[in-house]
């Protein structure tokens, strides 16, 4: 009769690591030896549970932090363009309002001069001048309204500044929403 099996032999038998002859000898021994069969069943159970591991769910923060570290977010191009355009509009308008160019003699002189040299330039200046005059008039009305209701004279310049700040924020947000939609559609 074959000697009792050591733990290593039993584990090799379970893992199918023995030669055909060794395998047959171990199998025959397990039939007749209760002690070794008990050990074999023990290791077999252990093996079964080890082969079916308990995984721990990784926290979502891992993926998020790795992506943030490797691919830092840069502002979308459209947002940057929107911000630049809005800021440019703000500066021009602010200068225009502050110096009251609609009634400024320099602008009027420029209009007269350009009308003699180029009709196109004169038309452009006139259109811009008309738009800003209209905007200026609206600000004046708002200022007068606030003055009448709340007895506070904020000033046309401040109202212009606040309005254009709101305009920039609105322009910026809209452009981001549009960009996100385009990006989502392309993904």
């Amino acid at each position: 009769m074959m000697e009792c099996l050591n733990n290593e032999k039993i584990q090799e038998y379970i893992n199918g690591e023995l030669t055909t002859v060794e395998n047959a000898m171990v199998r025959d021994h397990l039939i007749i030896c209760k002690k070794c069969r008990f050990e074999y069943e023990y290791y077999e159970r252990l093996e079964k549970y080890l082969e079916d591991p308990v995984y721990i769910k990784p926290p979502e923060v891992i993926e998020r932090n790795v992506l943030k570290a490797l691919f830092p977010r840069i502002p979308a191009l459209s947002s940057v363009l929107a911000l630049i355009a809005a800021s440019f509009t703000l500066i021009i308008t602010w200068i225009y309002i502050y110096f009251d160019f609609a009634n400024n003699s320099i602008i009027q002189a420029l209009q007269i001069t350009s009308s003699k040299t180029s009709n196109f330039i004169a038309s452009v200046i006139k259109i811009i001048s008309t738009i800003f005059s209209a905007v200026y008039a609206i600000f004046k009305i708002i200022n007068a309204f606030i003055d009448a209701v709340f007895k506070v004279n904020i000033g046309v310049e401040i109202i212009g500044l606040l309005t254009f700040m709101m305009f920039i924020s609105f322009f910026y947000l809209i452009s981001r929403i549009i960009f996100k939609k385009i990006k989502g559609a392309n993904a």
């Binding site: 591991p53 995984y55 990784p58 891992i62 993926e63 992506l67």
Partner: peptide, 22 residues
């Protein structure tokens, strides 16, 4: 391709985290 890295990370995250945590 950034999305491929995300895919690779999703595939290995559970096993790598499990190993390190244990």
């Amino acid at each position: 391709k950034k999305s491929s890295f995300e895919e690779l990370m999703k595939k290995y995250n559970k096993k790598i985290f499990g190993f390190i945590f244990r």
